[in-house]
Design a protein around this nucleic acid. Structure first.
Lengths: 142, 142
DNA sequence: CTGTATGGTTGACGCTGTCAACCATTTGAT
DNA sequence: ATCAAATGGTTGACAGCGTCAACCATACAG
C-alpha cells in the first residue's frame, strides 16, 4: 500500500483523531450522547454554575447552539437549568447525578480503550506514550 | 482548575482529537472541504479506480452517503466519476489535479501545525514523538 | 431469457448547528 | 427615578450531512 499525497505523520494523527473522534467506531461516546454533548457535559461538570454561553464559548458554538445542546442534555436528564439569583438573565447549568454517572462510565470506556491500544504498541512504552499525549494536550492549551 | 470525573489521559486524548478533528479551530480542513470530504478525497487519491461504495466502506458511511460525498467533491471539481468499462454498474472515482492540489496543501497545513505543536513541547525530541504517534496509528490498524 | 445479485442514485426524513430577530434583565447615564 | 444600551438566553427559519428505503441499470448464473 503506497500512500501518496499525505505525509505519514499527518496520516497517523488523522487516524488517531478518526478513531477516537465522533465518527470513529464509537461515533457516539455513550448510549445516547453525541460527541459535542459529551464535551459539553464535561465542561458543565467542571464549571461551577456554568452559564449557557460559557459552553458555547468553550466548545466553539454559537449561543443558540449552546442553548440547543443544553436543552438536549436537559431532556436526557443529565443536566438542569437553574435561574441565577444574582443575575436574572443567567441560567446556571448544573450536572445531575445521572449526568455524573454517564460521564464516569464514558470515561471508563475511553480509558479502557486507550489502555488496550497502548498495550498493543510495539515497544510497550505505554507510560512514555501517556506522557506524550498529556504533554501534547498541555501544549495545545498554551 | 480542578478537573473532575474524567481521567487526565482521557481528557488529553479528547483535547487532541478536538483540536485536530472536525470541530477544532479548523473545523474545516481546508477552504471548502469538510473533514469527511477530506478523508474521502484521501482515500480516492490512494485507491486505483475507486468505486463509490469503497469510500463508504472505508469511512463507515452508507452507500448513499458515499454517493453524496462524492457528488459534493465532484461539484467542487476535486474528483471525477468515470463509468467503468469492465462493469457498467461501477463508477470509478478519480481525483483531479485540483484535488491533488487541495490534498497537498491541506497536508502541508496539517504537518506545519503538528511541527509547531511538537516544537512547543517540553520534550524536545521531536523524531521520537513522531515515531510514537506513528506507532500508535499503526496499533490502531491491527 | 429469466430471476437474482450488485453498484449506484434519489426522495423523504431527522438531527445538528447557524443566523437573525426577539424577550427579559441588568447596568449606567442623566 | 428613568430611559437607553448591553448582555444572557430562546426561538423560527434555514442549510448541511448522512440514513433509510425504494428504485434503476447492469451483470451473471441457471
Amino acid at each position: 500500500m503506497n500512500k501518496r499525497k499525505i505525509s505519514d505523520l499527518s496520516r497517523a494523527l488523522i487516524e488517531i483523531v478518526r478513531h477516537f473522534g465522533p465518527k470513529g467506531p464509537n461515533g457516539e461516546c455513550c448510549e445516547n450522547l453525541s460527541m459535542p454533548e459529551f464535551l459539553a457535559l464535561d465542561k458543565i461538570a467542571n464549571t461551577e454554575d456554568c452559564p449557557v454561553q460559557n459552553i458555547g464559548q468553550l466548545l466553539g458554538f454559537t449561543k443558540s447552539g449552546a442553548t440547543r445542546i443544553v436543552n438536549r442534555l436537559e431532556k436526557k436528564g443529565y443536566v438542569q437549568k437553574i435561574k441565577s439569583f444574582e443575575d436574572g438573565r443567567v441560567c446556571c447549568v448544573v450536572i445531575t447525578p445521572q449526568g455524573e454517572n454517564v460521564l464516569a462510565s464514558t470515561d471508563e470506556r475511553y480509558s479502557k480503550e486507550i489502555e488496550h491500544l497502548l498495550a498493543r504498541m510495539p515497544d510497550k512504552n505505554a507510560p512514555h506514550m501517556k506522557a506524550l499525549l498529556k504533554d501534547m494536550a498541555r501544549a495545545l492549551r498554551d
